[in-house]
């Protein structure tokens, strides 16, 4: 199953919010949907869900335009919200019914999900009596109540303790395992890197990067090396200032006993290795770019203050 956005354009009045946005998400491979605050992610999601109508462009599922009324999409919005003063059980079942389940079906699904998410003990409690993390589990249950084929999760891990985060991870992995299309939006790059095989970065309404994450990483030159010398750093530091190091290294930074060496050219890696054979090193690591670095490069502005 494949979901595709093609040339989506959207403006609100004079403000252009999405410009020629195209990307795709496949079942069984989670998509990391990234972007700064205000980049247009929520708008794109709402267009997928049919809440907003795009000005032009298409949303396709397996080649055909998405049928909003029948498409089963589960959405966990970043802005968590429900009826704080009502019981959990009531709300889950209600939403299930709204999405087309009968009352008995809805109840069964609710029970099943709460059990899976280890939140069954809260079944009769009011939403606002739960901790933030538990509220989030309930939100997830609601997103999944109708067994959707497309699941869109916006910052699902924020505020979760490690145990609950693990439960969530397991659930998402299962969803991916079932071949569902999972779209994952988060600023916590660690999680995205863990789950998502594909990524897509949105910046100021336009796609700046999309594709298979591994391939993207490989496309970056492997020119950063992390070396930890065995002995005293001073000697190593001084040595780096001389040839042959000074010829092949563009930049050297130090952090807590580790030296980060940036090669002028990636092919000089072997030369570096050769030059280091004189030294005793504890660790030699070729660094691949982290998602965070990629993100900062593509969507960040070096001159802006963080």
């Amino acid at each position: 199953m494949k979901m595709e956005l093609r040339n989506i354009e959207k403006s609100f009045g004079q403000k252009k919010v999405l410009e020629n946005v195209s990307f795709s998400a496949e079942g069984g491979r989670a998509l990391g949907f990234l972007g700064r605050n205000g980049a247009g992610k929520t708008t794109a999601i709402r267009i997928i869900m049919g809440i907003f109508l795009q000005d032009s462009g298409q949303v396709l599922v397996d080649g055909a335009p998405i049928a909003q009324s029948t498409a089963r999409i589960g959405y966990m919005p970043e802005e968590r919200g429900l009826y704080p003063k009502k019981k959990i059980w009531e709300q889950i079942v209600y939403i299930g019914e709204l999405r087309g389940l009968t009352a008995p079906q809805s109840k069964k699904r609710a029970e099943f999900l709460l059990d899976k998410l280890e939140a069954s003990e809260y079944i009769d409690k009011r939403l606002d009596t739960l901790s933030k993390g538990n509220q989030q589990k309930i939100q997830l249950a609601i997103a999944l109540i109708h067994d959707p084929e497309i699941v869109i999760l916006d910052e699902p891990f924020s505020g979760l303790d490690p145990i609950n985060a693990a439960i969530l991870k397991r659930t998402v992995e299962e969803l991916v395992g079932y071949g569902k299309i999972v779209m994952f939006s988060s600023h916590q790059m660690g999680y995205v890197e863990e789950f998502c095989r594909d990524i897509c970065i949105l910046d100021k309404g336009a796609i700046v990067l999309s594709g298979d994450l591994d391939q993207i990483k490989k496309s970056y030159p492997r020119s950063r090396i992390r070396v930890v010398p065995a002995g005293v750093p001073e000697a190593f530091r001084e040595r780096l200032k001389t040839a042959p190091f000074s010829n092949i290294l563009e930049d050297v930074t130090e952090e807590r006993g580790a030296f980060f060496l940036k090669l002028r050219a990636a092919k000089d890696k072997r030369a570096l290795l050769a030059a280091l054979s004189d030294f005793d090193v504890d660790s030699f690591l070729v660094l691949e770019p982290t998602l965070e670095e990629i993100f900062l490069e593509k969507a960040g502005n070096q001159n802006e203050a963080v």
Binding site: E79, G81, Y83, I95
Partner: peptide, 12 residues
């Protein structure tokens, strides 16, 4: 204000 609307609007 409780953002329940976000869920409701995606359900009905």
């Amino acid at each position: 204000s409780s953002k329940a609307m976000e869920i409701l609007i995606t359900s009905a």
